[in-house]
Design a protein around this nucleic acid. Structure first.
Lengths: 225, 225
DNA sequence: CTTCGCTTCAAATGAGCATTTCAAATGCCA
DNA sequence: TGGCATTTGAAATGCTCATTTGAAGCGAAG
């Protein structure tokens, strides 16, 4: 067999370059020429090793996802037997840290895929997201106690996931809108991941508790109208 | 002068078609040819009327944004003198309804612009988003009372905005991942905008209250670690 | 009727890009 | 060393797309 060192080397270099570029410019925005240039490989290499741009895209995401999940295990090391609140803390911490990790390109790619789907990652994403959502559903269900209905679980999950996912989005927005005035006074959103984690946990626990302790049987219908 | 009917008609048709297509496929994903085909105009018309694809893009977003903000006034009709809680309800309701309005294409475009920026909308977006954020900052500051620090305001704003923006994102994700199994049992996320609005309001008020009533002077640092 | 703007049209131009091709290089086994 | 499979290289192919061009169409003013 061929040497691992050289032979797999260019394949690996291409994969790495592709991950970075796809994360920054998206599928349509990156050219195989650019990937090969960054990887110091010939233009034909990506077809030789991956069969085409499409397959490279899928492979790049998959490898980025595995690397990312490897650095940040779900639940953040909290035992699955721990009480629900501790597991929620772990879940939130894990997701936010994973998203904020500058080496984790997989969420950038997912974000673009959601905004402007190529359709190439559908299967790969389904497999990877589903288990994490199941865990969260279980945790939220326990915390809701008697108020555990499918609808309440869905809504609370939405609130939590939204808070975890958006810091990166908002960060990008601020970075984008900041262009013109480089000195915009205080930092728009604190870059301190730890602070964001603590805040999301506190905010979410309070939100869930409010619903769990809700008196009225029906949801409080619009009052401001 | 020429008739308004015919002459401005094709310009208008192009703008409308462009808005729809840009919202569905993004800047890079829509071709000038497709826009003209949908608008029943000649391929040269977009350069004639707008000067190029770039300018058409900006103009399409601007018109979509104006139309959207017109249908859904900020604060949702609540008086600026109303108490903070009522204004928060109005703000949240307005944003979620605007985002969920199937005729509002502007948020689709913004979403893509955030995920995969063209850089063409930076100025236009800055002008439009800033006032709404200022309103929210003021409201949240009032609700935080003594705990009103720039950091707390930033974090709470993030939580609220995230919850408002994400229903559409999650909806898209479910729609995307659903492809394979057309009958996936119960609806993934309730399409009932009213329910989402009520939930986000309840969840957010509880979250803000928890921070406003926080005992410890410092944020509760990581405990699960 | 003719001329003059404004608008539409079909075809052409030219750039960017993914993919192919085939020749050269490189390392491996006998 | 010489054949053989794997890998790399540079140029070519063929496609899509934004933009340009120059020739009509067309209503109104002279």
């Amino acid at each position: 067999m061929k040497t691992d060192a050289m032979s797999h080397d260019t394949r690996e270099r291409i994969l790495q370059a592709a991950t970075q570029l796809f994360a920054e410019f998206g599928y349509r925005g990156t050219t195989v020429a650019a990937v090969c240039r960054m990887a110091s490989a010939n233009i034909a290499a990506v077809n030789y090793y991956f069969g085409g741009k499409d397959a490279l895209y899928v492979e790049a995401w998959r490898s980025a996802f595995l690397a990312s999940i490897n650095r940040h295990p779900p639940l953040g090391g909290v035992s699955p037997e721990a009480p629900a609140e501790a597991r929620l803390r772990g879940w939130i911490r894990s997701l936010i840290e994973r998203i904020s990790d500058p080496d984790s390109c997989d969420f950038e790619i997912v974000h673009m895929e959601l905004a402007n789907p190529t359709g190439l990652l559908t299967n790969a994403m389904r497999e990877s997201i589903s288990p994490m959502e199941k865990m969260l559903a279980q945790i939220v269900g326990e915390l809701l106690g008697k108020k555990k209905t499918p609808e309440n679980i869905q809504l609370c999950m939405m609130s939590i996931q939204a808070q975890c996912l958006n810091p990166r989005v908002l960060g990008k927005r601020h970075q984008m809108l900041k262009q013109e005035r480089p000195k915009a006074g205080p930092e728009p959103l604190s870059c301190d991941v730890e602070k964001i984690v603590d805040h999301v946990i506190e905010f979410s626990l309070a939100g869930i508790a409010a619903i769990a302790n809700r008196k009225s049987p029906a949801t409080p219908r619009r009052k401001g109208k």
